[in-house]
Amino acid sequence: MNNIVISLKNLSKSFDEKQVLKSLDFEIHKGMIVGLLGKNGAGKSTLIKCLLGLLRPDEGRAQVLAEDSFNISSAVKQRIGYVPQTMTGFRWMRIETMLEYTGSFYSKWNEKKVNTLLKEWDLDPWTKISALSEGERQKLSIIQAMGHEPDIFIFDEPVASLDPAARRKFIKQLIELNLDENKTMLFSTHITSDLERAAAEIAFLKDGQIALQGDLASIKEKIKRLHIRSLKELPEQLPIKNVLHSNRNHNSAVLTVNGVDESDIKRIKEQYGADVSAENLNLEEIFLELNR
């Protein structure tokens, strides 16, 4: 059974001379919450838009539920919930009309759920969209994407304008959705703490490609910072594998590795009489390391 929900293969996209995505490969499996991390301008939105068929890639293939992204069928659209980075809506509409309008496109629309969410997020349905703050608009976008109970959620920086309390509520919502209904989610953000809670998998977008993708726990276990303090002078190139970054200063060195090899550590200890300690890195630090 094919449980690949989203598939990007060899995707390339340029804007004028600037190549944003380079032969990118990316897959999301059913029921996963995947966090997409990347610097500003790394191409997260571009990736998402190619995925959804809002942009046409120069090369490669983007598919959602085995359908070409550029030509997603109506049936599949019913199953996708998208929260774009900026919400543009009919400014004259009121929240309830906006939701009614959105709902009218879908064969199923859970009005009860929508109303509950509105209450929870403190939004008055009678407010005009033009009167909403940035954060409120973002909340509305999220609600809009949830009303038709899609299987697949794509969030493009959905919480950028939300305060920590609102963000927590949102994360909780996501987790509940994933729990109860095994929804698949792609969540692009640069707020690492949110991902550390909610995501099962992380994908790092760097230089137009997915530099690293994997289970969050494994990533945390593999990527570590080694602190080496020795009595002797340390060489330029230390015999350690999988080094992402190294900073050597005579007798001490700090290295970031992707996978600690115990035999290497032992050798260092013996050869240089060094003291080696491994520091766990959280996602933010890992992100910084990968983007150095």
Binding site: A217, K220, E221, K224, N280, E284
Partner: peptide
Amino acid sequence: NPSSGEPIYKQ
């Protein structure tokens, strides 16, 4: 602590 260097499951 989700933001620690140690994976949640390990904690």
